[in-house]
Design a protein around this nucleic acid. Structure first.
Lengths: 146, 146
DNA sequence: TTTATAAAAGACATCAGTGTCTTTTATGGG
DNA sequence: CCCATAAAAGACACTGATGTCTTTTATAAA
């Protein structure tokens, strides 16, 4: 698993809100957790991280819940990765060589570096909104049953 | 970290043995652990897995230790990965979508599939011996200080 | 202002990967 | 055969990610 579960939960939750929230209404975590089949309380903490980073809005109390804000869809996936994963997945040498860089590369450094950079670019330039645009009629299902 | 520490320990240990073992002699785990700066007892378990899979030979008792066998250098890195990691790193959807395949792809499935296949191919066709061949005069150091 | 509601926060449990230590097993040399 | 040696095996601790539950805080509606 390249990425944490937290990242998957976060992305799917935001997509779910984007796809299902009616105009001006909020979506509650109980619903999200149930529809996405994700542990409710753990999801709460993940969502909280995103909210703290202003990528999503939340409101407590009656009629409260989560809703997109003006930054949500423009957020690159890489940002979501950094928020949900403690450490940077792309930083470490794939072969666990501690000293591995252009000057003193591990035997696979150059090939892996190219690969890493490709991934990095993909996740940098792909926003949550981009992912949403790729949807097909079944998209909501593919998120939900995941 | 894409791969486990175990995988890194395993690869570096085998490389260390290949680079330092004198003709017909065995290398002991105390030396490996010390030179590679790796936890000794944990390394013992990792090595044991490799030995069980016949990728490396071990002998107990005086003058015992580890030595390469006729399969060692021909072993693809992917095999070492599979032995040292419980699960298959390449199997899971990068976005943690449970149902993600060609028929019902996650929004990034196709791009990520291409990357995964690149990596998979690289690790399938690169053997431990290949890594060894890429060595330079400092290679032993780059393994040791890692 | 009171109340119901829903997120936030905090305490705690579980699990896998990692790390440490002790006991057991196997083996070469005397 | 006995002994020293080195790997194997087993018990246990630690850590971070994940998962569960309870208590606290904020807010909308009446």
């Amino acid at each position: 698993m390249i990425f944490s579960k937290s990242f998957g939960y976060a992305l799917r939750s935001v997509l779910y809100i984007a796809l299902t929230a009616e105009e001006g209404k909020r979506v509650q975590i109980d619903e999200i957790a149930k529809k996405l089949n994700v542990p409710r309380y753990f999801l709460g903490k993940v969502m909280n991280k995103i909210v703290k980073e202003k990528i999503l809005d939340s409101t407590k109390g009656p009629y409260g819940g989560f809703q997109l804000n003006d930054k949500t869809l423009a957020t690159p996936l890489l940002r979501l990765i950094h928020i949900t994963e403690g450490t940077d997945q792309f930083k470490n040498c794939v072969l666990s060589f501690r000293k591995c860089n252009a000057k003193r590369p591990c035997p696979l450094h150059h090939q892996l570096e190219a690969y890493k950079n490709q991934l990095l670019q993909l996740f940098s330039e792909t926003t949550i909104g981009d992912v949403l645009k790729k949807n097909d009629p079944n998209f909501i299902n593919s998120i939900a049953i995941s």
